[in-house]
């Protein structure tokens, strides 16, 4: 059902590097799952609103008041690579 190309496309969208073996395995497994999920098409949902939250809609808002956040040290404590208080990433985007 899913082609190898489609699997590769999704993997790029999701930023996941997959081995050739993984691509084929996922292709099979995801196809089976999606085929099973296709049974939802049996149901007539015309006029049925989607549920994006089980809670009733109401505005939950916060007052506009400043509160202390994290210090640079705390934020950078978990950082893999940093420089002068900033996070460091490779200079090239890599998107062609």
């Amino acid at each position: 059902m899913l082609t190898l190309q489609e699997v590769e496309h999704i993997a790029i969208l999701a930023r996941l590097e997959l081995s050739a073996e993984e691509k084929e395995r996922f292709r099979r497994q995801l196809s089976a799952i999606l085929e099973y999920a296709a049974r939802l098409q049996e149901l007539d949902t015309s006029g049925i609103p989607p549920t994006s939250s089980v809670l009733p809609p109401r505005s939950v808002l916060r007052p506009d008041a400043v509160e202390p956040g994290l210090s640079v040290e705390e934020l950078l404590k978990n950082a893999p690579r940093s420089e002068n208080g900033q996070f460091r990433v490779p200079p090239v985007l890599g998107l062609e």
Binding site: A11, I12, A14, R15, L16, E17, L18, L75, N78, A79, P80, R81, F87, V89, P90, V92, L93, G94, L95
Partner: peptide, 21 residues
């Protein structure tokens, strides 16, 4: 980038896909 494991690379696309993959 901000936390967690990282498999470095010379471009950002690889950094993301490799780390996550």
């Amino acid at each position: 980038i901000r936390f967690g494991a990282r498999l470095d690379s010379d471009n950002i696309l690889d950094l993301f896909t490799r780390t996550r993959g």
